[in-house]
C-alpha cells in the first residue's frame, strides 16, 4: 500500500469501511457515515483532522466501521477529490469495467 502523505493544514476527510457491508464510507459533519464522498465532512487543519479521526475511531470501537483514517482531498472541486489515486478508486469504484462479456 502506498504510504499516506503526512497531513498538515490541508483539506482532509475521514474514510473507513463499513463493518457489515465492507463498503467505502466517509464521516459526515453530523458524525454519521455516508457512501458519497460529496457528503463527507471536510476540515483543513491538524487539530480538526485529529478531532474528526478521534470521533471515527470511537465509532470503530462501537463496531460500526473498520480502520478509519484521514486522507487529503482537493476541496476546490465538488465533490472533493482525493489526492491519492488509491483513494480516487475507493471513491469511484474500479476503473475498469470488469464484468466479462457473456
Amino acid at each position: 500500500m502506498a504510504k499516506a502523505p503526512k497531513l498538515n493544514s490541508q483539506p482532509q476527510i475521514v474514510t473507513a469501511n463499513d463493518l457489515r457491508s465492507g463498503d467505502t464510507v466517509y464521516l459526515t459533519v453530523t458524525g454519521g457515515w455516508t457512501r458519497r464522498i460529496a457528503e463527507a465532512a471536510v476540515v483543513a487543519n491538524v487539530e480538526a483532522g485529529a478531532a474528526l479521526l478521534a470521533e471515527a475511531e470511537a465509532q470503530a470501537k462501537q463496531n460500526i466501521v473498520v480502520a478509519p483514517y484521514l486522507i487529503p482531498v482537493d476541496a476546490s472541486v465538488t465533490p472533493p477529490k482525493p489526492i491519492q489515486y488509491r483513494e480516487v478508486l475507493r471513491a469511484e469504484g474500479p476503473s475498469t469495467e470488469t464484468r466479462p462479456a457473456a
Binding site: M1, A2, Y85, R86, L89, P94, S95, T96, T98
Partner: peptide
C-alpha cells in the same frame, strides 16, 4: 491490482488489457 486490492500500489488489469 489497485482496482480492488488494499495492498496494491498500481493497477494491473487496465495495463494487461
Amino acid at each position: 491490482g489497485l482496482d480492488y486490492c488494499a495492498l496494491a500500489n498500481a493497477r494491473s488489469i487496465p495495463i494487461a488489457q
